[in-house]
């Protein structure tokens, strides 16, 4: 099949698939960031049980394979009388996994600030909140631009999990197996999805680099 034939026949389906992938990516990324911040606050809090629980959370979700998590959410939870719509199940999986990585990036970002600066801030008589607002956050946010762009790309790649459940409209990976079972799409069908994924990743990377160049702290 040539690319024109394929687009004429499945063009609108590709568009819907692209929208599904973008939807999942951006909603998950947004939720994962919020969750990641909450988890990180728990990890640096002086309250021991919260630290342990948050560390545990991060180790679970950074180490669980996406397929295993999705299977648990879709096929195992109904045994506990919890039935999730497919889209929600995918969304939860693609939020929980990136949220643990988000917390790891934030932690390592905070660690680059160095204890010396905190000690200096304290000797200037800053309160805890002043330290967080004027010393920790400005540096942490600036140095987290590149990790966050990587996280956004990683989240997009994780959303390919959506192809493992029947979803309508399906995502960019699901559409390829759909076309290949309904017609002989061949390499072209893959190429379109691949270009859309990769193009998005490159654009995200470029925007991230631009922002990073503006706010980067030279050490």
């Amino acid at each position: 099949m040539t690319i024109q034939e394929l687009l004429a026949q499945f063009g609108d389906k590709y568009l819907q698939a692209l929208i599904t992938t973008y939807q999942l990516t951006f909603i998950s990324f947004f939720l994962a960031t919020i969750l990641g911040v909450i988890i990180t606050v728990m990890r640096v809090s002086p309250i021991r049980p919260l630290q342990i629980a948050a560390d545990f959370y991060v180790q679970i979700f950074r180490n669980i394979p996406g397929a295993a998590l999705l299977i648990l959410l879709v096929y195992a939870l109904p045994y506990l009388n919890i039935v999730l719509p497919y889209f929600t199940a995918v969304l939860i999986a693609t939020t929980l996994i990136p949220s643990s990585f988000c917390s790891e990036y934030l932690m390592s970002g905070m660690n680059t600030i160095g204890a010396g600066q905190i000690e200096a801030a304290r000797s200037l008589g800053m309160t805890f909140m002043q330290m967080i607002r004027h010393v920790v956050m400005p540096q942490a946010i600036r140095s987290s631009v590149l990790p966050m762009t990587n996280l956004l790309v990683a989240t997009m790649l994780t959303t390919a999990l959506a192809s493992q459940v029947p979803l309508n409209p399906t995502d960019l990976t699901g559409i390829v197996s759909y076309i290949n079972t309904h017609a002989v799409g061949g390499i072209t069908a893959f190429l379109i999805s691949a270009v859309l994924y990769c193009g998005t990743a490159v654009i995200i990377g470029q925007i991230g680099n631009q922002i990073d160049r503006k706010v980067r702290i030279l050490r």
Binding site: L157, A160, T173, V176, S177, G186, A194, Y197, C198, V202
Partner: peptide, 19 residues
């Protein structure tokens, strides 16, 4: 390198599975 990093593993798997 960009292609390898910007495409989900599942898409590669379907490629080798179907093509």
């Amino acid at each position: 390198i960009e292609l390898s990093r910007g495409i989900p593993t599942l898409l590669f798997i379907y490629f080798f599975f179907l093509v």
